[in-house]
Design a protein around this nucleic acid. Structure first.
Length: 877
RNA sequence: GGGCAAUUAGCUCAGUUGGUUAGAGCGUCUCGUUUACACCGAGAAGGUCGUAGGUUCGAAUCCUACAUUGCCCACCA
């Protein structure tokens, strides 16, 4: 060993990661630098802001790993690179957490403490969570520009939200109306369509008599005031009732019944006739709208109990009311039958699982179908479809653009008002004309960025859907906070960051929020900014356990990334989330997998340790002098090309695998071993190591930076230049030049393997000789072979030798008093024969030789030749 | 009900536009104290690529049907 340097035998991630991160951050390396190439577009990613409630989970770890690869790659390439961190206030989720805590600790509800006090408590909680998140994201090694951190409730972002709200309002894309909405009786708020989930449940299905019709339902209690029966216009059974109007017996005596026709009634379903309850069913609401029917008051209230409009049922819980209602119907002999085993999809709140009540409520909506001038006479929906349809925005994997389009095609108006306290307050003020609460017809409305002047204005108590503000994330985070303008256009003009960095390059996130978030960003950004928010959408899968199950607390199968980082190091965790995965497909993670990559990181460490300890720094250029040198330098050039191609094509797994294979199977297993025989490889070894560290750096930033610091202290690795990558043409030319060296070295590897195999079977003490014909062996090739496989080289067949294997024009002899098991040899002979037959058949096929690519035909011919030679050798003994 | 994906070694997964004998990691078996590494090294075994057809000189890859699994959307009055 040339160096006295003492390096630990295993890489201890725990001891170095924090220091390294601190060094990157304090040197300002995460901040964007002007591009080396002025023509090159900056590379920008807005980090999907994690909820301000949580702690780091594997979903976060995945997005950080993938995005950091892209960001570090572009930084090394010399691009102006910006990765914007931040957190999302996650309105309902956050308020829920604090409300739960309040109840648990003090047995108080939000109404007990009041709006201001609740918000104060939420703020305190959020501040703490943000601190946790920041610390944990740093532990993953994420090279986020923390000086650019944003929060969806920052004043700057809040102002942006108010501005966009006003723009939409002025364009008449935001309206307020009495419409049917999803209502969570627990969260006490509306939910957007995609915030509702469905759960299968076994419930009784009732069939009752409604005049001449048989009506089925799982929710009889809503049928209290029904008076319309809907049948399909073409349903012959009911043609005679079309337009019928008359009195029929119902729960409390006679009621008026009207028969109307609508295509929504499915003749195949049940009796083909249904009654409608527009207050509590989306479909019924639409039917009522088409027929301009009067819509009565809600029967179910926001508290989940029946309202005074339900008369004697008022105040009852839904389930109690149902029971009573059915009993009363039964007494009147109006129940036909009850199916107790009916499987029904119950809609529930995605946050708390409580059944959702559809009911009528006065809410704010975004109109997605109205065509407006700003969008060149298109609607929000059409615009959002177009930018994906025409390729301005590319979605990866591609099949998700189909899903996106389908969703967009079926998009309904977006209910954006929420009856919770935490979030962006709706920038609308009301003044009652008569100065008294009550009649809404008499009120004046003011919509603005700032509160209106004068007295008597009261702000809308509601807040905005959390996705409303996150839909602006790519541009709201780039607006200058110091600037106050009246319009968004002006603001953008006066925001240098916005002008430099928008649109962003890539939006990387899990496919589960494609609709919640990605689609809405496209919707809102194309409208408000008249730019796409990002050019490429990369969707990763969900992290699951080894059996493909979701990780959950109740199953106890969760993996805490922070614990894994503690034990295996951040680099290993990152690799385990990237290698062996493909975009859009779920990722199965388990501890052994992380351990595998920890082992790899240690391998990289030990290769470096060996090079550091056995070579000295040198200024000599890495010039190949032996076959092995030529081989490794060619394969390394090839690796650079592969890695770059893969990263550019977002195939991060393939890039990582190529690096892994080169590092372990080529550099460590062969070249480092060659270097022990051939010596004097300091320049090449150090050159390979340095460049390899750069290539690995996006994947495993900590260990590479650490090794780098032991190697070269001038500049940090994170801001070093990416090595020049040869073009495919250069590689091809190089291959032609180095062809013999490459073939020879790879031949050595094969022969070595064969001899080792036989040595194991025949035992020690056997001598091996190889006899070659055809081209002359190179001196260093012979030397390498004899050292690696303890083998002699000869031009002539040894007297008492037995052929144990053959490769092309090489024969391998075991020499001496050898009794060998010929089964293996016979097996090889058979295999070679089969191969020859196959190849002869293939090459005898004119269609193949004519239609297949010439290179392939030539290759097959070469293989046939080799196989024949081999068979000849094998048959000699 | 509509749509999308998946099905490859015992397990977890790769497999770019159809083209060598289908790859990797883990696990299994055999051997190994060569001073970079036992978080290691050398080797081996293990797959008719879900099933059945089709297109093609050639299919894990393209087409059709079916089966199984998962997800998304719609939602049954």
């Amino acid at each position: 060993m040339k160096n006295q340097q003492e390096l630990p035998k295993t890489y201890e991630a725990k001891g170095v990661e924090a220091t390294i991160y601190e060094r990157w951050e304090s040197a300002g390396t995460f901040k964007p630098k002007p591009a080396a190439d002025a023509k090159q577009k900056p590379f920008v990613i807005a980090l999907p802001p994690p909820n301000a409630t949580g702690t780091l989970h594997l979903g976060h770890a995945t997005m950080l790993a993938i995005q950091d690869i892209m960001v570090r790659y572009h930084r090394l390439k010399g691009d102006a690179t910006l990765w914007i961190p931040g957190t999302d206030h996650a309105a309902i989720a956050t308020q829920n957490v604090v409300e739960k805590q309040l109840w648990k600790e003090e047995k108080k509800t939000r109404h007990d403490v009041g709006r201001d006090e609740l918000l104060r408590r939420i703020d305190a909680f959020v501040k703490e969570s943000q601190g946790t998140i920041r610390a944990q994201f740093r532990r993953m090694g994420a090279s986020l520009d923390w000086s650019h951190e944003r929060f969806t409730l920052d004043e700057t972002l809040n102002r942006c939200v108010r501005m966009v709200f006003k723009m939409l309002y002025d364009d008449k894309l935001i309206y307020r109306g009495n419409r049917i909405v999803n209502w969570c009786t627990r969260c006490q708020t509306t939910l957007a369509d995609d915030e509702v989930e469905y759960k299968e449940e076994k419930v009784p299905f009732y069939n009752f008599t409604f005049g001449p019709f048989s009506i089925g339902t799982v929710r009889p209690e809503t049928k209290l005031g029904d008076k319309y029966v809907v049948v399909h216009p073409d349903d012959k059974r009911y043609t005679k009732y079309h337009g019928f109007k008359g009195m029929i017996p119902w729960i409390n005596g006679e009621v008026e019944m009207n028969v109307i026709t609508d295509e929504a009634a499915d003749p195949e379903m049940g009796s083909g006739a249904m009654t409608i309850t527009p207050q509590h069913s989306f479909v019924d609401f639409e039917i009522a709208g088409r027929h301009k029917l009067e819509i009565k008051e809600n029967l179910i209230g926001m508290d989940g109990k029946l309202t005074p409009a339900a008369g004697e049922f008022a105040g009852l819980e839904v389930r109690e009311a149902r029971k009573k209602f059915v009993e009363m119907l039964d007494e009147k002999k109006l129940i036909e039958k009850i199916d107790e085993d009916y499987i029904h999809n119950v809609s529930v709140c995605y946050r708390c699982g409580t059944p959702v009540e559809p009911l009528i409520s006065k809410q704010w909506f975004v109109d997605v179908n109205k065509k407006i001038a700003r969008l060149h006479n298109k609607s929000l929906r059409e615009q959002a479809l177009e930018v994906v349809g025409n390729g301005d925005i590319k979605i990866l994997p591609e099949n998700f653009s189909k899903i996106y389009k389908h969703w967009m095609n079926n998009l309904h108006d977006w209910c954006i008002s929420r009856q919770i306290w935490y979030g962006h307050r709706i920038p609308v003020w009301y003044k009652l004309a008569n100065g008294k609460a009550g009649g809404s017809e008499a009120e004046e409305i003011y919509v603005g960025i700032e509160p209106p002047e004068g007295n008597g204005w009261e702000q809308d108590p509601d807040t905005l859907d959390t996705w409303f503000s996150s839909s602006m994330w790519t541009f709201s985070t780039l607006l200058a906070s110091s600037v106050k303008t009246a319009t968004l256009q002006d603001w953008m003009k006066k925001s240098p960051d916005f002008k430099t960095f928008h649109p962003t390059s890539v939006l990387e996130t899990g496919y589960d929020i494609l609709f919640f978030w990605v689609a809405r960003m496209i919707l809102m950004t194309t409208y408000a900014v008249d730019q796409i928010p990002f050019r490429t959408v990369y969707l990763h899968g969900l992290v699951r356990d080894k059996l493909g199950r979701k990780m959950s607390k109740s199953l106890g199968n969760g993996i805490d990334p922070v614990e894994m980082i503690e034990e295996y190091g951040a680099d290993a965790v990152r690799l385990s989330l990237v290698i062996g995965t493909t975009p859009g497909n779920d990722i199965r993670l388990y501890e052994e997998k992380i351990a595998t990559y920890r082992n790899f990181v240690n391998k990289l460490w030990n290769i470096s340790r060996y090079i550091l300890m056995s070579t000295t720094p040198t200024e000599v250029a890495p010039t190949p002098t032996t076959l092995a040198d030529e081989w490794i330098l060619y394969r390394f050039d090839e690796l650079k090309r592969e890695v770059e191609d893969h990263i550019k094509a977002y195939r991060f797994s393939a890039a990582g695998e190529a690096l892994y294979d080169f590092t372990w199977n080529k550099l460590a297993d062969w070249y480092v071993e060659f270097s022990k025989i051939e010596k004097n490889k300091d320049a090449i070894l150090r050159h390979l190591l340095k460049q390899l560290l750069v290539l690995w750096h996006p994947f495993t930033p900590f260990v590479t930076e650490h090794i780098w610091s032991l190697l070269d202290k001038k500049e940090q690795l994170i801001t070093s230049p990416w090595p020049d990558t040869p073009t495919q043409e250069q590689l091809d030319a190089d291959y032609d030049k180095r062809h013999q060296a490459i073939v020879s070295i790879e031949e050595i590897q094969l022969v070595t393997r064969m001899v080792r195999d036989h040595k194991q079977k025949l035992g020690a003490g056997i001598e091996y000789t190889i006899v070659t014909q055809g081209w002359k062996r190179f001196a260093d090739q012979n030397q390498l072979l004899s050292r690696l496989a303890t083998i002699h080289y000869s031009d002539v067949e040894p007297d008492n030798g037995v052929v144990v294997n053959a490769l092309g024009d090489i024969s391998i002899y075991a020499v001496g008093d050898v009794t060998i098991d010929t089964t293996k040899l016979e097996q090889e002979r058979q295999e070679t024969k089969t191969q020859i037959e196959r190849l002869e058949a293939l090459l005898g096929n004119k269609e193949f030789t004519q239609k297949a690519p010439k290179a392939l035909v030539a290759k097959e011919e070469e293989r046939l030749k080799t196989a024949k030679e081999r068979l000849e050798k094998l048959s000699q003994h």
